[in-house]
């Protein structure tokens, strides 16, 4: 039994320390995932919190087979779809960026962030799960409920697109 499954077992038995440990471990990753799928940071934090709440409510449906992260990301993905539908995405522009706590990073990579955020949804999900969630391709395929090959080809297509734009940016800066 892996660490995640051991924590889940303890949580099912009512161990709140195990719950805190799980949240501490996964909160940053889920926040990163939600950040790129909703309109703004506030929504991302709310969506992250909702994800963990829904996890508690439906923990019974998780069958402990070492696939906890996929299960959690599936919940996060559904939550983000709700949030996205409820609010329109704010375009990344200098005015909005100045109000964000991550202003330095965003300003220096403004166009790159914008391009990442504006990838086709299915490509963006794969990239975020790969680089923010640090999931393997097999896990990404499980979360998105697609064949492994489809996940691979979407990731390749997304990276090709970003690489081209990233290299062009690089050249123009130089």
């Amino acid at each position: 039994m892996n660490r995640d499954d051991a924590l889940v077992r303890r949580i099912r038995a009512g161990d709140s320390a195990a719950l805190d440990e799980l949240i501490a471990c996964y909160y940053p990753r889920i926040l990163r995932f939600c950040y790129w799928h909703v309109a703004n940071r506030n929504d991302a934090e709310d969506a992250t919190q909702d994800t963990f709440l829904k996890l508690i409510l439906h923990l019974d449906s998780y069958e402990q087979r070492g696939k906890f992260s996929s299960f959690l990301y599936k919940i996060a993905s559904n939550v983000c779809v709700d949030y996205f539908r409820r609010s329109r995405p704010e375009p990344a522009n200098p005015e909005a960026a100045r109000n964000s706590p991550d202003i330095d990073k965003i300003e220096s990579n403004d166009s790159f962030a914008w391009r990442l955020r504006n990838l086709p949804e299915e490509q963006k999900s794969v990239v975020i799960l790969r680089f923010a969630g640090e999931l393997k391709i097999r896990e990404i395929a499980e979360v998105m409920d697609i064949p492994i090959r489809t996940a691979q080809s979407r990731l390749r297509a997304a990276l090709r697109r970003l690489k081209l734009e990233y290299l062009n940016e690089d050249r123009s800066e130089k």
Binding site: A44, D102, F112, V127
Partner: peptide, 11 residues
């Protein structure tokens, strides 16, 4: 690009 993506994705 990979490193840029990892850094970009940090929140």
């Amino acid at each position: 690009l990979n490193r840029a993506l990892r850094e970009e994705c940090r929140v």
